[in-house]
Design a protein around this nucleic acid. Sequence first.
DNA 1: ACTTGTTTGTAACATTTGATACAAATCTAC
DNA 2: GTAGATTTGTATCAAATGTTACAAACAAGT
Lengths: 227, 227
Amino acid sequence: MIEADILCLSPIFRGISSTELEKLFSQIHYQHRTYQKNNLIIASGEICDRLLIIQRGNVKAEMNDYSGKTIKIEDIEAPRPLATAFLFGKENRFPVTVSANTEVEIVSIPKAEFVKLLQMNSLILNNYLNTISTRAQFLSKRLKFLSFKTIKQKIAHYLLEMAGDRLQTVEIQQSQEQLAEMFGVTRPSLARTLSEMNHEGLIETQRRFIKIVDKNRMNQLLKSDEK
Amino acid sequence: MIEADILCLSPIFRGISSTELEKLFSQIHYQHRTYQKNNLIIASGEICDRLLIIQRGNVKAEMNDYSGKTIKIEDIEAPRPLATAFLFGKENRFPVTVSANTEVEIVSIPKAEFVKLLQMNSLILNNYLNTISTRAQFLSKRLKFLSFKTIKQKIAHYLLEMAGDRLQTVEIQQSQEQLAEMFGVTRPSLARTLSEMNHEGLIETQRRFIKIVDKNRMNQLLKSDEK
DNA sequence: ACTTGTTTGTAACATTTGATACAAATCTAC
DNA sequence: GTAGATTTGTATCAAATGTTACAAACAAGT
């Protein structure tokens, strides 16, 4: 049986009352499966034709790299869904292997039945559309960020974004180490570039506080890759 | 008035007959707007709360870089939709400016009305879900590709992907120039790396034909960034 | 076969970034 | 305040890539 009071906390069913969710589930076909610890739930390459929602326990997603070795991607726990990115679209195979970290209960909704659900309830439809759209927007942003070639450009982009229109001084929340990882560069390289920009009069750094001195030239740094 | 026989060629209405589409449109509210050549259709930063579909003519999307200069992103022509990526999700503002290349007719469907449409017709729902999912999958793939640091890794990844399980020899469709652009590197750098891999016995290059000689070592190249 | 334009291979040098190491500054717990 | 841990600033050297330039190979039309 499904436990509606748990599932309604899932991003996809957010805002639905548990009684209403039960009613909705009574109108569709779905399966309920239990997996023992360490059991395989999804094999990499398997076709994704149903939505899986973890009702209890947590699972790990691993990816096979080219040499066959597996790398852990992430842990996913109840009540999160499993297949949102591959249920629709051209790529319908799981790129990852999913297995149970603990004893796990999973609710499995065939694609066609899930579509019914989307049509029956506009809140679920909105939730689902928001989920995958937000993901696409995140990826797009990340891609744009990576499109800046030099560290200087990445810093400029980051600072200008953080500062917005009015602020002059930005306080970095993370450590330089974390910032460097987000930028995909090494920590000393980031520090060196910050120091250079400081000497060039673009910014003034003081530990975690960075003041944007010459906004115009910062902008031009980003402009220069249009050539 | 909408011209159903044109709109049903749009990715979102694919597979719907024009008579059925007319019937569906008769059940929702929408607007029909005409823009003269060079007129502004969407200002960057504007909130996206409706789906726009070009019924006639074509438009250009431009992005303001930080220094205020505009860069042309793409041309979009009838009968393609305009706002699929920003209608849902957290980021509901257009990052681009859209203006008319020719005289343009646009059908504008408020978000809430479009949701009705999705609920009334499962084909449209599937089309739309496929559109945004495919986009997310494309972005994800691109991001993975860019996550490979060295040119050698990018080449290895590309070749192994192209070759699949059986092929040994890959024929490059694009020119080296285009390939380099896709990789985000310069053409001479790409050529140099190909040449290096040739000398190392990983591949054998012959103009546009590349033979994978040592698949194992190619795989290990990709594995090495897990450290 | 010849000319012309395009694509590819290669070289020399400059620039950027990574790797490593270490000192200085800051923070934290006691 | 002090000791120890963490974070930040900086230097040196190596590796990867960009830049520029040019020659060789190829493609297409005449």
